[in-house]
Amino acid sequence: MAGTREVKEQVFISTIALMNVLGCSILIAIILLVIIEGLSAIDLEFLTAPAENFGAEGGIVSQIVGSIVIVIGAALFSLPISLGTAIYQTEFLSHPQIKNISNTLIYLLNGVPSIVFGLFGLIFYVHLLGLGVSWTAGSLILGTMIIPTIIVSIKNAIESIPVKYREAGKALGLSKWKVIGSVVLPYSLHGVVTGLLMGLARAAGETAPIMFTATVFSGILFPSSFTDPVTTLPTHILYLSFEATNPQTLVNAWGTALVLLTLVFLMSVIALYIRWRYKKW
């Protein structure tokens, strides 16, 4: 009996080990493929020139700029809201049931498919607020989408601040706001930055919510007003793949993917580094 159990266990362990190897290999294969295929498209011109001939020629500078603009806009919108919500929930909301409900809402919001945010944005930001198809609408949509991620990260950081620091502050006579300003915020700053970067990394790679609310394929170099649309890296990849019959277009799609991957990867790595480096306890 013991023998068969051991065998079963061995089989089980081998199976999950195989899954693990398989999972990692797929990931590595994708990354390698993007790097290998992408590198052949990338040169200085690709990074600094605008697209030409429907993306078959030229570069992706306006897509890089567009992605950065839209992501910065998302950051400016989501950060104050997330910070305010996290502080309100941890410092002022004491009713356990309301706390629970709002926590559940945040987790649910995190699970909403991004296309739904796009649809919401189309109705609310594009039409109702009259922003039109514009980078501002895209920033607001992506910002809305990543708010839960940022809130959760900030709340985790705030909740892991040892109680003794708050109490030492209170015992010195600091008011509630002073404790927030000189204990809670500084000691959860790593969570703020990490959450923001993780959220933005996700926002930078999204296509669905912005392709019909914020971006156009071409015809725009840099936005010159709040209501201008932009072109972005992920939507550029999408449009280029539609033209897959032209081999040069496909090469450029890989190149764009590599740039996007690098951007997102950088943000994630910085986020992880900050989380690791600034954990004080």
Binding site: A171, L172, L174, S175, K176
Partner: peptide, 8 residues
Amino acid sequence: HHLRQQIG
């Protein structure tokens, strides 16, 4: 907080 300042 004024109380706490006076009672350390």
